[in-house]
Amino acid sequence: MRILAAMSGGVDSAVAAARAVEAGHDVVGVHLALSRAGGTLRTGSRGCCTIEDALDARRAADLLGIPFYVWDFSERFRDDVIDDFVAEYRAGRTPNPCMRCNEKIKFAALLERAVELGFDAVCTGHYALLVDAPTGRELHRASDAAKDQSYVLGVLTAEQLAHTYFPLGDTPSKAVVRAEAEARGLSVAQKPDSHDICFIPDGDTRGWLAEKVGTATGDVVDRTGAVVGSHEGAHAFTVGQRRGLQLGVPAADGKPRFVLEVRPVSNTVVVGPKEALATAEISGERHSWAGAAPQTDAFACEVQIRAHADPVRARATVEAGRVTVVPDAPFDGVAPGQTAVLYLGTRVLGQFTIDRTLSAVPVGA
Rank of each mutant, 00 (worst) to 15 (best):
D253S: 13
V269Y: 01
R19L: 03
N267G: 04
T346N: 14
Y89C: 14
L186Y: 00
F299R: 03
A33S: 10
K106E: 00
G240F: 13
G240K: 10
G244T: 04
F166L: 14
G333S: 11
M7W: 14
E103D: 06
I305T: 05
V249F: 10
R223N: 10
P311D: 01
A6D: 01
V213L: 15
A142M: 03
T317M: 10
A16H: 00
H126C: 10
L153F: 11
K106N: 00
A181G: 01
E112V: 00
L209P: 09
A114N: 04
A162N: 10
P311V: 00
E116G: 06
P250T: 15
C123E: 05
A335V: 13
D132L: 13
D144V: 03
P95E: 03
A179T: 08
V70W: 06
Q246C: 12
P294V: 08
D83I: 05
A292L: 11
A307E: 07
L161C: 13
A133R: 09
A226I: 12
R322Y: 08
E112K: 00
K255S: 12
W289Q: 09
A108T: 02
F199W: 15
L209R: 11
L344C: 12
R58K: 12
A293L: 05
V325N: 06
A181H: 02
G254L: 09
L342I: 09
R286L: 09
A234L: 04
T135V: 13
L247C: 08
L63T: 11
A290P: 07
P311E: 00
R243A: 13
Y151E: 10
I354L: 11
Q190C: 03
R76L: 15
V221I: 13
N102G: 02
V227G: 09
